[in-house]
Amino acid sequence: MAESHGSASKFLVGIFDDDDVVLKAVKEVKDAGVRIHEVYSPFPIHGLDVALGHPRTRIGIAAFLFGLTGTLTALTLTMYTEKLDWPMVVGGKDSYSFPVYIPIIFELTVLFCALGMVGTFIVSNGLGPTVKPLMFDLRTTDNKFAMAIDLGKNKLDETKIEQILKASGAAEVNVKQF
């Protein structure tokens, strides 16, 4: 994934059975002064990113710009081919008649926007066909929820954090090293 792991770091992984519990636990663990590395889940949990304090994604801006590129491409393409390079009167329309290009403009806007946005998503999340996933627990793509805590970035000691995790509802707490 995108997060870099230069040296081996040691993680404490709390495994939860329930999405509501993990959402509540995030707040409790944070309140107890523990820095959470990330939470992993088999499906999106509404409000989890806000609870973790992740900033809102700005992919929308990228999507808008890609869409705009598509609009401009379509305008340029139709303007260049039909007006400048080879003016042609078809069906009694002017060589450049804006209404008939609206379908092309729309389609290219959508195409550029969708492909650009998905491309940005893949790149910004560090995804790719050769990427080895950073799995804290294989069950998090099935039915479990994992809260990973980077011990190197926390002042509290391992046992204390383990207690906090257990108290907030973790079914088990494992140690994972990368």
Binding site: M1, E38, V39, Y40, S41, P42, F43, P44, I45, L48, D49, L52, H54, T57, I59, G60, A63, F106, E107, V110, C113, A114, M117, V118, F121, I122, S124, N125, G126, L127, G128, P129, T130, V131, K132, P133, L134, M135, F136, T140, T141
Partner: peptide, 30 residues
């Protein structure tokens, strides 16, 4: 290879949900 190294982190899910909505918004007029 096809799952692109997906690991279901909260950050990825949030972005995933976001782009799903935008893709839906694009696909509807499309």
């Amino acid at each position: 290879a096809f799952s692109l190294g997906w690991n279901g982190s909260a950050k990825t899910w949030a972005r995933y949900e976001y782009i799903s909505l935008i893709l839906a918004g694009l696909s509807t007029p499309l």
